[in-house]
Design a binder for these strands. Structure first.
Length: 330
DNA sequence: GCAAGGAACCGCCAAA
DNA sequence: CTTTTGGCGGTTCCTT
């Protein structure tokens, strides 16, 4: 892991802290997502400057034995790092011992202040709590430790249902593999939906795993097809904030409206307008889950004419009002 | 919640 | 002759 580093100076610097007896997937999972993204961006020529420079750091430089007995090697200690763009703290059964390291906690506070964003995977949240970084903020952790998190950080609003939680520049994720889901979200915020979808497909994971509420995922299904309609579906994701009438979609797919309509229904299973409506709804729902947006904002970015329209469509398909949904699941 | 207007859908037929 | 594509118009659903 320590060797997986890009040399580009412009790269966004991502660091993951691994203490002894950390959970190896917490460390490697997110790093894999970032490195895949970097490679994908370079291979496709979408960006010439590198996306991410990734690094794993330890309490000390050298081998770190993880909870499963596997070892990863830290190139340097956290003491040698003054700044990075994104800092993530891994979880694992070693968190308790690590939480007693006052020097490291003080360093975490400094980094949290300086970094563009910071966060944790799994029980890494408990280290952030120990550092006093979760007071007054929304956060989550492994389900078995949510109570403990509440005790350690009484001012923290624990979200036990969430896969991951964003509160401003703080990102916390639930157990182990959810670190990859969270990393994908960071990738999406940096590079857009299309990139996140491609990386998710390559890794065969959901870009956004269905959370507590069962919901369909539009990924890993139709979009992986390499035909014109598959491309169009990706294109729709990137133009959700615009008007997408049938004629325009047909034009984008280079077909007559009638033919396009027929083919789309055959290939995708739903009619074009129904598909667009579904994707808009799902995007609105996703954003409501991830926190505070004004309905006006939400309506605009998801392609609804106004808030009234969003409200009506939301009630029709989801069954509850957006505000109520946000209260329950946001 | 309602009426008016518009967009989408789909069966049908014809041309390629 | 079969398959693919495009246009027309009635009906339904959605937005205003």
């Amino acid at each position: 892991v320590g060797a997986l580093r890009s040399n580009r100076a412009m790269a966004h610097h991502v660091a993951v802290l691994a203490f002894p007896d950390a959970q190896i997937l917490d460390v490697v999972g997110p790093l894999e997502v970032f490195s895949r993204t970097t490679r994908w961006l370079q291979d496709t020529g979408a960006r010439t400057d590198a996306a991410y420079r990734i690094e794993m750091i330890g309490l000390d430089a050298g081998p770190v034995r993880t909870s499963g007995g596997l070892e990863v090697t830290a190139v340097r200690s956290f003491r040698e790092m003054e700044a990075c763009d994104t800092l993530l703290v891994a979880g694992g059964i070693g968190w308790e011992a690590a939480a007693g390291d006052a020097e490291m906690l003080a360093w975490l506070r400094r980094m949290a202040d300086r970094a563009q964003r910071f966060g944790s995977i799994c029980t890494g949240s408990l280290l952030l709590a120990a550092a006093g970084l979760l007071d007054g903020r929304r956060a989550t952790t492994h389900w078995a430790y949510c109570d403990r998190l509440g005790e350690m950080a009484p001012g923290c609003f624990v979200q036990p249902e969430a896969i991951f939680v964003q509160d401003g520049k703080l990102f916390t994720s639930a157990g182990v593999t959810t670190g990859m889901d969270m990393a994908l979200e960071l990738v999406e915020q940096d590079h857009g939906k299309a990139v996140a979808v491609s990386v998710a497909q390559e890794l065969v994971i959901y870009r956004k795993r269905p959370g507590g509420q069962a919901q369909f995922s539009r990924f890993l299904e139709a979009e992986r097809r390499q035909d014109r309609l598959g491309e169009l579906q990706l294109w729709i994701l990137d133009h959700l904030d615009e008007d997408l009438p049938l004629d325009r979609l047909a034009g984008a797919a280079a077909m007559s409206p009638r033919h396009f309509s027929r083919r789309f229904k055959d290939e995708v299973g739903v009619t074009p307008a129904a598909y667009v409506a579904r994707v808009r709804l799902e995007e609105a729902r996703r954003r409501l889950e991830s926190g505070a947006h004004s309905l006006k904002d939400l309506a605009r970015t998801c392609g609804f004419a106004d808030e009234q329209n969003l409200r009506r469509a939301f009630r029709r398909h989801v069954g509850v009002a957006p505000s109520e949904y946000r209260e329950r699941f946001g």
